[in-house]
Design a protein around this nucleic acid. Sequence first.
DNA 1: AAAACTACCTGAGTGC
DNA 2: TGCACTCAGGTAGTTT
Length: 274
Amino acid sequence: MPELPEVETTRLGISPHLVGQDFRRIDLRDTRLRWPIPDLVADLTGHSVTALSRRAKYLLAEVSGPVHQGTLILHLGMSGSLRIATPDIPLRKHDHAIFALGSGVEMRFHDPRRFGCILWHEGDPADHKLIRDLGPEPLEDDFDTDVLAATCASRSAPIKQVIMDGRVVVGVGNIYACEALHTSGIHPARAASRISKKRLTVLVNEIKKVLQRSITQGGTTLRDFLHEDGSSGYFKQQLTVYDRENKPCRKCGTQIKRMVQAQRSTFYCPKCQR
DNA sequence: AAAACTACCTGAGTGC
DNA sequence: TGCACTCAGGTAGTTT
């Protein structure tokens, strides 16, 4: 479900409720996520969260206390979400982990498909196996034309697959890959190595713009992405191609087409994108 | 090294 | 109503 804007929206929503709080009770109701939730997580009762940051689509909660010191690494997979709820609100199906906080509210990890994860890491999370080989953050200055051009030079794969490769740049999922390629006028199936540096500059800027705009709008609610309080994101209205098969291109009026690349749907305008 | 493909899992929607 | 089928914001791991 969530791409970078949705994860960042979640972080912004959760942070004020979580940071500075201690865990009063931790209830692991179903530990069968992508990898099992480690037993140690249940022992973090009495420990506090000192910071909540994000790397790629991973949320990193720094935890310290009398026994343990480390980072909770959370990923929302395809269908995960975090919600803040008061204890009187009934648990929902697929609320797999409940973190009761000192303030009296609960943070609930909800994930129907269980592709997400909750892991524990001691030491610098940047060294964690899942994080250490990731590419630059798309909104940081170190993701620029030179970096993308250097990668693309050796890649014959379709550009869409290259920008969705987390070793190249993180956080660009299926929706925003389609969107950025559309506003850049680049055909998703074009070989990465056959795109001029000038056009890659446009693409880099469009990736940054679409992600930043979506964060500002609270992310994209397509099916089930909701904020920490249950409200939805507003960016869906501004999607220019994603999920718009057979609808008119907002730039030229041509019918938007759908194709399948790497087992994922790609939406594009056959006229605007070359 | 890069590309192609598999696997993990539940729920919503569609067509018969 | 029920069944069979397709599709869905991701990505690690394996094979070619």
